[in-house]
Simulated scan of single mutants.
Amino acid sequence: MAKKKSITASDLIGFYMDYVLMHNHKPKSVYAFAKDNNFEEQKFYEFFGSSDALEQSIFKVFFDNTVKALDKSGDYHSFDARNKLLSFYYTFFENLTANRSYVVHALHEHKNGMQSLKVLSHLKKSFANYIEQLGIKTIDLKQEQLDKIQNRGLKESAWFQLLVTIKFWLDDTSPSFEKTDIFIEKSVRASFDLIDVSPLKSIVDFGKFLFKEKMHMN
């Protein structure tokens, strides 16, 4: 059978996800992966330097698809930072849900230590840039170095919040993952209230929700 001549990065990602789900493990080598999908090995290296690089790009694709969908929405561009982030979360988790079998396989063994997970490294960089572009209002410390530290802390805390939400979604067994939607709404609202030094009502409400869910899971 003739080898496939026209191969795109999207094709390779699709082949890779299918391979992992069908075999329940990563390809043993790029050569074996290429042979299994009937294309020349060199075609792979036109897009990715290794299987790890391809794997890391998958979660960035989920991010990119989310941003593209939001950009097409006229309403999104009129939202404030809080509602833009809420829209991002809902759309991003729709993308994860559409690929849940792969995401669970990729993250399940590491769900208690995702902070340092290499497979999410490209996603982390893209998400940090997204948070920076949201223009979230913080306290004006009137000192450049302190402002840089505050902005770095904002991006790290936003990343941690995303990881915690992914962990909650991985464990969520509710219909249509409706509890994850509640988690998103309450956690994003609470985080913005904390930044704005606003009344703690929403933070307490979020704490009660977490306590209730923890008791239920135990």
Rank of each mutant, 00 (worst) to 15 (best):
L96T: 03
A106V: 04
Y31G: 00
K28Y: 04
E41D: 14
F92K: 03
N129T: 08
S51G: 10
A69W: 12
K201C: 11
F44Y: 08
D196S: 01
S29R: 07
S29G: 10
K60Q: 15
M1P: 08
N218H: 03
F127T: 09
V164T: 14
F63N: 06
S174M: 04
T91H: 14
T173D: 05
S6A: 04
N99Q: 02
L54Y: 15
D172H: 09
E94S: 13
T66C: 15
K186N: 00
E144M: 01
L200Y: 14
P199Y: 00
F160P: 00
K125L: 15
V104F: 09
V67A: 02
T97F: 00
D193L: 01
F92R: 05
G135W: 07
M215P: 00
F88I: 09
R100I: 12
Y89C: 13
H110A: 05
P175A: 05
N151C: 09
S57L: 13
Q133W: 11
H110F: 09
H23N: 04
V30E: 09
F88Q: 10
K111E: 08
K4G: 05
H23F: 04
L146Q: 09
N151M: 10
K3D: 00
V188P: 11
S157N: 02
G14C: 14
E178H: 03
W169N: 01
K148G: 05
Q133P: 08
E178S: 10
Y19R: 10
V204H: 15
I131M: 09
S121G: 15
F39G: 09
I58D: 11
D171M: 10
L170D: 12
N112W: 07
G49K: 14
L96D: 15
E94H: 08
D171W: 10
W169D: 09
Y31K: 00
F206Q: 01
D71F: 11
L154G: 11
D205N: 13
A128V: 13
I136V: 13
S174C: 07
F33L: 06
V67Y: 11
T165S: 12
T180N: 07
D11M: 07
D140Y: 00
E94W: 06
F211H: 08
S176V: 04
K208Q: 05
K35F: 00
Y19K: 07
S10R: 07
K167A: 07
S10F: 09
M114G: 15
F59I: 08
S157D: 05
F177G: 06
E213N: 14
S6C: 03
R82N: 07
I149V: 13
P27R: 02
A9M: 11
L120Y: 12
A190Y: 12
S50M: 01
D71A: 14
F206S: 03
G135M: 06
T180Y: 10
F44L: 04
L162K: 01
E213V: 08
K28F: 02
S198D: 13
E144R: 05
I195N: 07
Y19W: 08
V61C: 11
K167R: 07
G113A: 11
K84L: 15
F79N: 08
I13N: 11
N218T: 02
L123T: 06
F168E: 12
I139A: 11
Y19E: 04
A2V: 14
L96W: 13
F44V: 02
I136W: 01
A106W: 05
